[in-house]
Each structure stands twice: as structure tokens, then as C-alpha cells.
Nucleic acid binder design. Sequence first.
DNA 1: CCAATCGTCGAAAGACGATTGG
Lengths: 278, 278
Amino acid sequence: MALYTAASSSERIAFNTLNRKTGNRVKREFIDSETGDPVEREDQVKGYEVENGQYVVLETDEVAAAIPDSDKTLKIDAFIPCSQIDTTYFDKPYYLAPDKMGRDAFLLLRDGMKKQGVAAIARTVLFRRVRTVLIRAHGKGLIASTLNFDYEVRSSEEAFDDMPDMKIGGEMLELAEHIIGTKKGSFDASTFDDRYEAAVAELVKAKIEGRSLPKRQAPVASRPSDLLQALRESAGIGAKVTKPKRTAANANRGAGRQKAAKPAAKAKQAQAPPRRAG
Amino acid sequence: MALYTAASSSERIAFNTLNRKTGNRVKREFIDSETGDPVEREDQVKGYEVENGQYVVLETDEVAAAIPDSDKTLKIDAFIPCSQIDTTYFDKPYYLAPDKMGRDAFLLLRDGMKKQGVAAIARTVLFRRVRTVLIRAHGKGLIASTLNFDYEVRSSEEAFDDMPDMKIGGEMLELAEHIIGTKKGSFDASTFDDRYEAAVAELVKAKIEGRSLPKRQAPVASRPSDLLQALRESAGIGAKVTKPKRTAANANRGAGRQKAAKPAAKAKQAQAPPRRAG
DNA sequence: CCAATCGTCGAAAGACGATTGG
């Protein structure tokens, strides 16, 4: 079977960090916190803090030995009724498709599960961990969701600790149901848009075109991929663009590193945590 | 309303990187990729790569201006039938509990939704983005799942591109259903254990106790939190523990940084501090 | 090339964001 990532934030606008003074990209170097000397990769070891400032040292290969062997298979443990699934455990979704070999078995699994109204609990090694996955029929194929480990999911008891054990009934409940009835809608993913992403895209576009952005204009929400397309088109127009000076010797290195470019604008964390809503 | 993280990997064993030669912790410094000079935080700006090596510069405050204002509320857009929900969009789960003020409204919402078999689609600002969340009744309270943005979820079309449009029927399907029937189980989160985590915990424990670990022993799968407890108990026994040398001048800084240390041996948080969103 | 990892920051035991492994 082949796994395809079903959800990914890779379409987001990606930035690199630059040095304002030179326009060059920035890279990070690891230095000793006491001596300030650079620490090469082969001198970096893992430390488990036993007590304040006391560490047990673990060598890279010792940690690597703990990684489970991957036989690249997906082993089904059991089939469970779809009604029993606790979605709190859901981690990431992957589409599952058959490879050349297992097409018949794949279709049998899909249709058998669909007919019985069950999902499969399976295990597979994914990124160094043995992951439990939940497999369900999904359209023409299957969808596998990795499940959080038991220790990762908190009990709701604490959160609902001082919840009154009271049930609403009678007229009040009818009123609530009426209000709910007036706001019926449907699950429409096209409304799940990302205004921050749109605003950042608009900002970049304005910069490229040499415009200044009106303060706090409400950005038009649209698919970032459309905006990326627009950005690419705008790019030719040119504006305040910084071209880093580079030495001939470094030209290749720099080009290679562009691939590593990573997403996401981190600006100031304007979000102070405790927030009241609702 | 208050939001409580329902799933977190914070109970995992966390390491710090050490310099093998000195036993000191390592920290990272940002340096200019061409000149090699350190780049201070205030000189770090975002660059959007327009073309190979050409960047549009975005200042931190410009990017920050794109962050939506948070009025700290949770606005319900609509109620949708639970049957319509596409779990491919699920991102992270949060428990929702009422604050002092809104207890009645909370219970009305919970019981009204439960009775009608619907979930609420709402919006709130979470970590700089306006997020769409799906709210459902869950035990005594509510659970809110952030939903992936539309552009983050891939169409399954590509993955299921060359899936034969064939349906299994008759005897073969019956056989499949029979096999499924023989492997019926239940959704049991206690079996969702993390063998890698357990093996790493065992490795650390062995190190602390001065044992050497048998090669590739099959680690006993148990809750990492139990293992962490065991580690704490072992810690007194002492073994090969590295104590970083520190200068008097750095003692305070070092102590301060310990807080920053991801508490590997973190005792279970009595109660996760609620993020207020309500 | 993408996605998961990893270390750090800072307060939220969570998210960011550069890096690297598959």
C-alpha cells in the first residue's frame, strides 16, 4: 500500500530569515553555552537532565538503536464498529492506495469494511515510531488516520471538573433546539479560509509591486494558492527587492540551501495566551 | 469559555543537546551565511524569495500587522448534522468548559446539540490565525476540534487516480466480511503505546543505573509516564552523570535557563492551565 | 522535494521555524 499525506501546510507562504544589514540569509550555528565555542555536529550529544544541571549523556547511535525496525508493512489488529471511534485520538490523515500487487485485497478490505460499518485498527512504523492507525473506507479508496498515543490524550475529567451535573430540560431545551434550528448549515470546507495567510500574501504582493499597504485593510479571503499564483505574476513587475551580495565561492551553497527554505512567518507572538472568548 | 488542550506530546522524554567535550549545553546562534558574523535578533528580517537569490524584505512589525485582532470570542456560524462531518479536516482537539458567567448557555448549547445530533461550526482567533472549529458534545462538556484550512487538505483524487472503478461483490465480498467478523475488537486506547518512547526511557534508566543495555532487547511497552516515574526513582542511584562545569559568572544564567529546559522529567501537571478563549 | 524532527522561545508543556532524513 502507498501512503499519501492528506493534510499539509506546505502551500503556505514560506520565508527565509535575512540579515537586514547585508541582505544575506542567516543560518544557525551551535555554540557552547559557557565557552561560546562552536560545537560541531559530531560533538553534539543528547543529555537527559536528571537533576538541576546534571545530565546523563546519550550518544546519537544509542538513541538510534531504540528506533524500531520498519518492515514497511501495515498490520491489521482488529476491526471495530465506526460508532466506537473516539476522534480525540485523531492525529494526521493519510490517503491509502494499493500498489500494483495488492489491488484485489485492497478493494476487498474497502468494500468489506464499508458493508460492515467498521474501521480497521492497524500498526505501522512511521518516522521512527510504531504508530497505531485507524483505517476507514473513503471514497474510492481508504483513509488512514494516525492515532495519538494513549499518554498524549488527556482525560476530560479535569477540564470538566466543576461542571454541574445538571441537565437542561423542558422549555429551555426546546428554546435552545429552536435557536439551533434557525442556524442550520452544512459542512462547507470552502469557508475554512485563512485570513492571516491572505493578509501576508497581500503584504508580499504589495511589496513586490512597490505599493504601500493601506493600514488594516480587510484582506480578501481567497485560496493562498491563488494568491501565490498572483505573487508569481507580480514578481516580474519588480519593486523593493533585495539581492544579496554573494561571493563566487558561495554561489552554489546558497542556491542549494534555497530548497531548504521553510515556511511560515513568525512574527511577534501577539497572542498572549489566556484569552477569554465566548 | 475556557479551552484546554486535549492532546499533547508534552509527556515525552525531552533531551537537551550537550557539547560532548565540555558537558555544557549547546545553544544556537544565528550567523550571516556569507560573512559568518552573528546576526542579532533585531537584525533578523523575513525575506520572501521572488527569484533565485532575490528577496523582498518584510519587517517584523509589518508581518505582525497581518495578525488578526482577537476579540477573544468564539462565534458560532452554523450547526451541521454530525453525519456530514469530514474528519479529514480535523486538526487538534481542545476541551471546552464554561467559565463562571456562561454556565447556563454552555449547558443549553451542549444539550441542544446532543438532542439534535448536530455540531457547531465556529470561529475563533488562535495563535495568530482565525481558525474554524467544530464543536461537539463530549461527556459532561464540549470538545472543539480546530479544522484544517481548505488549502491544507488535498483532494483524494490524485491518490486514488488509478483505482479501478470496480466493486467487489458476491462470494468474494462475503469471504471478506467473514474474515472481518473473525477479527472484531473494540477501540481500546490503552493499546496505543509508544515503543520508541519506552525504549528511550529504558535506555535512560539503564544509563542512570550504570547498566549496559542488552542489544535490541524488546522493550516492555508501558505508559511512558510510568517509565518517567521509574526514572525519577532511579535517579537517586546515580551513575554516569555529567555535571557541566560552570563559571561563577554564568551560574545565574545557567540556573535561569533550566526553566527553559523542556522538563524531561516533568511531573504530571496537576492541571493543565486553561487557555481562556471564551 | 516534502514532511517530520528538533531545539528554542517564552509562558501555553505549545508553537515556531530551520534542518534533515526518507
